[in-house]
Design a protein around this nucleic acid. Sequence first.
DNA 1: TTGTAAGCGTTATCAA
DNA 2: TTGATAACGCTTACAA
Lengths: 376, 376
Amino acid sequence: MGDGKPATIYDVAARAGVSKSLVSLVLQRSPRVSDQRRQAVLQAIQELDYRPSTAAVSLAGTRSRTVGVVLDDFRNPWFVDVLTGLREALQDQGHRLVVADRFLNTGLDASPVEGFLSMRVEGIVIVGEPDTDLAIPASMPVVVAGGRAALPRADTVANDDRAGGRMAAEHLLALGHTRIGFVGATSAASAERLTGLEAGLAAATDPTAVPGSAPTPSVTGAPSVATAAPAAAPSVAGTERTADTARVAGAPSVVSVVLRGEPTEEAGARALDELLDTHPDVTAVFAANDVMALGAMSALAARGLRVPEDVSVMGYDDTPLAATAYVGLTSIDDRSVEIGRGAGERLLARIADPTTEAHETLVEPRLVARRTTAAR
Amino acid sequence: MGDGKPATIYDVAARAGVSKSLVSLVLQRSPRVSDQRRQAVLQAIQELDYRPSTAAVSLAGTRSRTVGVVLDDFRNPWFVDVLTGLREALQDQGHRLVVADRFLNTGLDASPVEGFLSMRVEGIVIVGEPDTDLAIPASMPVVVAGGRAALPRADTVANDDRAGGRMAAEHLLALGHTRIGFVGATSAASAERLTGLEAGLAAATDPTAVPGSAPTPSVTGAPSVATAAPAAAPSVAGTERTADTARVAGAPSVVSVVLRGEPTEEAGARALDELLDTHPDVTAVFAANDVMALGAMSALAARGLRVPEDVSVMGYDDTPLAATAYVGLTSIDDRSVEIGRGAGERLLARIADPTTEAHETLVEPRLVARRTTAAR
DNA sequence: TTGTAAGCGTTATCAA
DNA sequence: TTGATAACGCTTACAA
């Protein structure tokens, strides 16, 4: 097919011997077009390799049929799955997805959101923790997928971190572990996961203490502080540790080391060292995420401790890293595809009726047992 | 800021007390505007939270100032770096980047390229191996970044896999290894890397055999078959092995196991087993990529062999996986940022002058030594 | 330096 | 069931 300037609707109309309006109707699959004309138009389209200009369509039309997806970082392993879910919910409804990370078009736009507003998207999905200064107009439908810090008038669909923490507790208890370490950082997710872990242990000790494993209905943004049995005297001075739950003799107990800062591999290693320095009898470690778990495993190896023979380790997020046979990390799958699908459906609802109240949805995670956890 | 319908250029013009053309001039940073008017316009823009509609801009304007980036898979770890390079080259020149993977808008468009054509992008970057049936009009500027299978009239910017293979050879030789195994799959990249490895060893044996380490100027798409000293009789029957270079007693030698299929972790493990079953005296393994290297490491661990004490292992691509402290894999960095930047610059040149001849650029890789390789 | 007016390629509203 | 014709929001000659 040769190719100078792209064909326009005029070219198609001329070739098919009809008016532009008729071509437009065919394009929109209107049933009020005679089969004869339709065929002629379709053929002309084919022959001219015609493609409607999205610019013209969204300028002239009433809707852009486009939604913008803001990723915090393309490096985030789970965004791919969220995207898959979003596609399932949105694409099939005829919406075009446009993806940008925080830096994609800086220089042209102040933020990805700026760019989306210029495109007149019909809605925006924020994947991950939203920047606080995103400046989205009140009238723009927004949903946060996978983040906890809810934006003012936005729906939220996120993993139930607390439930995940409980699952970790149940898994480790079932394997016979009673002295469990937690290794985390200062994020809401980390805090929730720890809370869940503690709740799970408490439930095992005193079945009446915690209702059950139903998803926690309310999720507050405030990081929850570890609450537990009589606190042991802080034994390590000058560290960044912020929480340390002591154990009651005999009962299952959790010792937590929560470092200030990002949940990196290096932080995981440091936290583990601190954990074992103060509590050498820990037999299982639950890390706030897979990357920290990896750090913990490095630190264990450095100490000559084997995983899982000497110490069991588990992470959170079920990243590709964890899934490799080489690492084989037991982890909690946060069901990112589900989160994406849920977010897409919520956005659709909000586009249809922007006045619907903000809604928070928690997606139940799932434990994936691999090689790094074993019976005690 | 309240917000009904987004403000238009008319609103701005009215509020500033000028004509729309004047506003347009200000938007385009024309110097032929009085400071007084400019201020008035700028202020009106501010107050109305005005944002030009990209649809209208690209409809009315002569150029869309947009380039489309086709990713083969969002999961590919190096695309992020390629994107960074592309940004550096394109964004700063005022081009908007639109990213899609192979499936992003299927259902609406037949392929991501379709979507880009509808948007009237000025150029397209294919990251990774291009689908053969992409159907891009001849007049559309295209460059392939990181892929080898050159499209008809497209520039290509890719890693110099052969040079990377040579670097691996030099690294392992320097560490005292002389019996080297290669673990690969059926891809052009894998073949080139093996060829480089062999060339590197040959150069060490007979310095006159290979010119040096300058980037190979010509890259053919055809997978090169291992060529070397007198071939040993294939010792393993019924396997998928396709190449097996024998060694000359005394001289450095390479034994290669190339499995048919994808270069997965599992393939890496299988290939390593086959390698050691037939050649137990290998002391170093070079894998076609990091994922296969990981598989090889798993298989080594299963055999009770330590890395790097018993066997050194290295990969290719320098993925985040390799960079974790836990894995610490020696790898070849393919300099994806450079590749992206180069691709962006080429695309710019081709947009400026579409008649320029197709050009192939090879980017010199870089070795990153970590824990998995050690002196013999 | 500023304004007027004619497109750009569609959709949408009316008539026919 | 079809066809004119007026938007849509902007750029771009061309005039003033």
